[in-house]
């Protein structure tokens, strides 16, 4: 479980996040949604400690993450995996070397054990046999899957995904969503996903938080989205005429 408590973030005079309080539950996919510039990425960076909040606290279970020193933060990060928007795979390393990097750095496993662990996570993301390929030799969707494999190789308790579907075709995006959801449920991970993909919202949104101009304006789950009378949520989710028609058709039917 991760909890943000009255979190504020400012850059000079510009207040990007205002009084955010929210709890992200374990074993669930927690989505942060909002328009570009709403503060989603800054909030995610605060959650993982890449930035410090101007005010407020962030708790990992019962540990105040914001008050920890660098060494303690690194200790907690051993339990954290993150999938970046651009995958952030190391270009000069192969798929296997990328996934093995955290194992090399933080475990005393033998080469054979590492190989087995890498093969296991590659199989989990349906990329068996891609060990020797470089990031430049695989597609965007495969790169995302390698990113997921790298982020779960140390069996994390917390998984953060920054726009996991950006740049992917709808079918591959669904596969990535399903994969993240399954991994979350299988391992009881606290997963926080930053997205503005409506398919993700309706498909895997166990908990959804809408940010608007740096403020938390709505929380709920995927089944509450349709019936919500929150105007900001409705105008964000059903921004396109196509989705508006779908909503109207669904409401008329139901």
């Amino acid at each position: 479980m991760i909890r943000a408590e009255n979190v504020y973030k400012s850059f000079d005079e510009n207040e990007v996040l205002k009084d955010i309080s929210i709890t992200f539950e374990a074993g669930k996919t927690n989505l942060i949604i909002g328009r570009s510039g709403a503060g989603k990425t800054v909030f995610l960076k605060l959650l993982v400690g890449l930035m410090q909040p101007t005010k407020g606290k962030i708790w990992y279970s019962d540990v105040d993450f914001t008050s920890l020193g660098k060494k303690e933060v690194r200790q907690i990060r051993m339990d954290v995996g993150m999938l970046f928007q651009g995958s952030a795979l190391f270009d000069s390393l192969t798929t296997e070397e990328n996934i093995r990097f955290p194992l090399d750095m933080f475990t005393n496993m033998t080469s054979k054990e590492k190989r087995q662990q890498v093969d296991k996570v590659l199989e989990r993301v349906n990329l068996e046999g891609s060990n020797d390929k470089y990031p430049s030799e695989i597609s965007g969707g495969m790169q995302k899957r390698v990113g997921i494999a790298r982020s779960i190789v140390l069996n994390p308790k917390y998984l953060f995904c920054d726009e996991p579907n950006s740049g992917l075709d709808p079918k591959t995006a669904l596969l990535i969503d399903e994969l993240i959801k399954d991994i979350t449920y299988e391992n009881n991970i606290t997963t926080v996903i930053n997205t503005h993909d409506m398919n993700s919202v309706m498909g895997i949104g166990d908990n959804i938080a809408l940010l608007y101009m740096g403020q938390l304006v709505w929380t709920g789950n995927k089944s509450e989205v349709m019936g919500s009378d929150n105007e900001l949520l409705q105008s964000f989710i059903f921004a396109s005429p196509f989705l508006q028609r779908l909503r109207d058709a669904a409401l008329n039917k139901g």
Binding site: V48, L50, K70, R74, Q75, R77, M78, V80, G81, M82, F84, Q85, G86, A88, F90, D91, F101, P102, M105, F106, L154, F160
Partner: peptide, 13 residues
């Protein structure tokens, strides 16, 4: 390319 951020989040100094 966010490689440094990725390493930081893994817990690497």
């Amino acid at each position: 390319k966010e490689h440094i951020d990725a390493m930081e989040i893994m817990g690497v100094n």
